[in-house]
Every structure is written in structure tokens, then in C-alpha cells.
Amino acid sequence: MARRLLLMHAHPDDEAINTGVTMARYAADGAQVTLLTCTLGELGEVLVPELEGLAAERGDQLGGYRIGELSAAMAALGVTDHRFLGGAARWRDSGMMGTPGNDDPRAFWRCSRDAAAFDLAVEQAVAVIREVRPQVLVTYDEIGGYGHPDHIMTHRVAMAAAERAAQPEGAGEPWAIAKIYWCAVPKSVLQRGIDALRESGGVGFDGVERAEDLPFGNDDDQITTAIDGRAFSAAKQDAMRAHATQISVDGPFFALSNNVGLEVLGTEYFRLARGELAGERDENGRERDLFAGIDA
């Protein structure tokens, strides 16, 4: 069976943080892995001092620069098919909820109140689905993991596109996606990471000492699937380093890799939103393979 995996993410770097080892594992196993990124991340904070002039409030060239970062990250993960929804810069980073970036004419979040814009974004995603014909789609949950408007909109567009792509209307042959997963992180895993950082003299994530106080994370019983990608942890770290304007090598991700080894970064977790759980389960009763139960 030719396995085809489509991942929809909001900004460059989201794919490496949330699904880096999953992408690397399936690419190495010979699956077709396609990344569809919805914006260029133009409003991201620039962490490299000599590149601060790229920021939106200055040169507003960060989005173009991040195309190169994403290409380098994909090379690290072994992924050759990466695209932008509607083409590069069709949809602009909306910024955090309630900020002026939400109102930009090209802001992806504009799709939340402009029916024509939403329909266009869905059609653009449908075109990719019908071309790639993935058996598995990975995206975010209803709150986009932590409430970022572009993550929420990515979820809405992805789910609507999956529905529409299976219908007979429109250009291209209909395609029904067998399994849809939402990215997830168990709170127990977050807590182990926080504890490890604190024990090594750190202060956890932004000073937070309890996973319950973070704006992201899932109750453990929500997790249906765990992908063991420990063999690809180095590739994930290289992909994150490629997003240098957004991820600091001194940040919590790399501290975690030093303090708790492969446990936190080497396994990625998901919630099955559509389809049937199948195949072997791990010691926690979680599915081990996104493609389990898919025959063709």
C-alpha cells in the first residue's frame, strides 16, 4: 500500500514542534508526506538580533525569510513535498487573538467572519487533498491547541475541506480521508518535562510549575495514539534549529532534550477525530501507527 500523510499547520515551525518525529519517521519508512502550511508566520517574534529588521513593524520581510527556514527544516526531516495554502503569502499571519493583525485584509483569521474567504481557503485545501489523496490527515483540535487564531482557522479549514473533498462537486476526483488526527500533548508528559527542568535548575515553561496552568495540554485519557519517533529525535531538533528566528537553542525544547533525553521530544501524541482505532497498542492502550487499519 502506498501510504500518504497530509499535515496542515498554521505557521512555519509548527510542524517541527508538533509533528517533527512523526513526519521524519513516515518519510523514512517510504510514505508520501505532504505539509500544507497556511501562512508565512509574518508576525512572529524575531529571536535573532541581527535579523530584527525583518519584523512586521520594521521591514515586514519575516515571512519571506521563513520560507527558507521551512525548507531547511523539511530537509532535516526528509520531507520533499511542502506547500503553502493558496500559494506563499496568500494568507497572512493573524497574530495573537485580539491584536491588530487579526484585521489585516489577508489575515487568515478573516475567514472566521468572511464567508467568501473561508470558502476560498477550503477550496484551496480541497484541491491539495484531491491531488495528494491522503489516507491520513493531521491538524489541530477545535481550539488550535492553545487558542491562536491561525491554529483555530487551520482546524476549521482542514475539517471542512476533508468533508468537501469527499463530495462529488467541484474540480478533481472526490477523495475521502480514512483517518483524521488532532495534535495533542498529555499533561502527564508536560508535567514530567516541567519537573525535569526545575530539578536541573530551570524554571519550567515561562515559570509555570504545573501542567494544569499551561494554555495547552490534554488530559491523558484523551490521547488515542502515540507515535514512537525516538530514532528521529535528532532530526526533529535539527528541524527546530532551522527555524532560528522563532526557536532559541537555549529555550525549553532544547533544555528538555538535555534533561530528559528522548522521552518528551521523541514521542508525539494525537487524538483520533475520525476513523477507527486499529492495530497494536502500547502499554497505555494507545494506537502505535497512524495508518493502522487502512488497507489501501
Rank of each mutant, 00 (worst) to 15 (best):
R3Y: 05
R3A: 07
R4G: 06
L5Q: 03
L6N: 09
H11V: 14
D14W: 03
I17H: 04
N18G: 04
G20M: 03
R25L: 15
A27C: 10
L35W: 05
L35G: 07
T37I: 10
E42G: 11
G44V: 05
E45D: 15
V46P: 14
V48E: 13
P49A: 05
P49T: 08
E50L: 06
E50D: 15
A56L: 07
A56N: 08
D60S: 14
G63A: 15
G64F: 12
G68H: 10
G68P: 06
E69M: 02
A72K: 14
A75W: 06
A75H: 08
T80P: 02
H82S: 09
H82Y: 13
F84M: 08
L85R: 03
L85P: 04
A88L: 00
G95H: 00
G95Q: 00
M96C: 05
T99L: 04
T99M: 13
P105M: 06
R106F: 04
F108L: 15
W109Y: 10
R110H: 00
C111R: 13
D114Y: 06
A115L: 15
A116L: 13
F118W: 13
E123Q: 15
A125N: 11
V128C: 01
I129H: 01
R130D: 00
V132D: 00
R133A: 03
P134I: 02
L137N: 01
Y140C: 01
D141F: 03
E142I: 07
P149H: 03
H151S: 01
H151M: 01
I152H: 01
R156G: 00
V157P: 13
A158G: 14
M159L: 10
A171Y: 00
E173W: 02
E173M: 10
E173F: 02
A176N: 09
A178N: 01
Y181E: 03
S188W: 06
S188V: 08
G193C: 09
I194D: 13
S200M: 08
D206W: 13
D206P: 04
G207Q: 10
V208D: 08
E209R: 10
P215W: 03
F216V: 11
G217S: 08
D220E: 10
D221H: 06
Q222N: 04
I223K: 05
D228E: 11
A231P: 09
F232Q: 09
S233G: 14
S233A: 14
A234K: 14
D238E: 15
A239L: 06
R241Q: 13
R241A: 15
A242L: 03
A244L: 10
S248K: 07
D250I: 01
D250H: 10
G251N: 08
F253M: 12
L256A: 10
S257Y: 06
S257P: 02
N258W: 07
G261T: 00
L262T: 14
L265S: 09
L265Y: 04
F270I: 03
L272V: 03
E276L: 12
R281A: 10
E283H: 11
R288W: 07
D289C: 09
D289E: 14
L290W: 01
L290S: 02
G293S: 12
A296N: 06
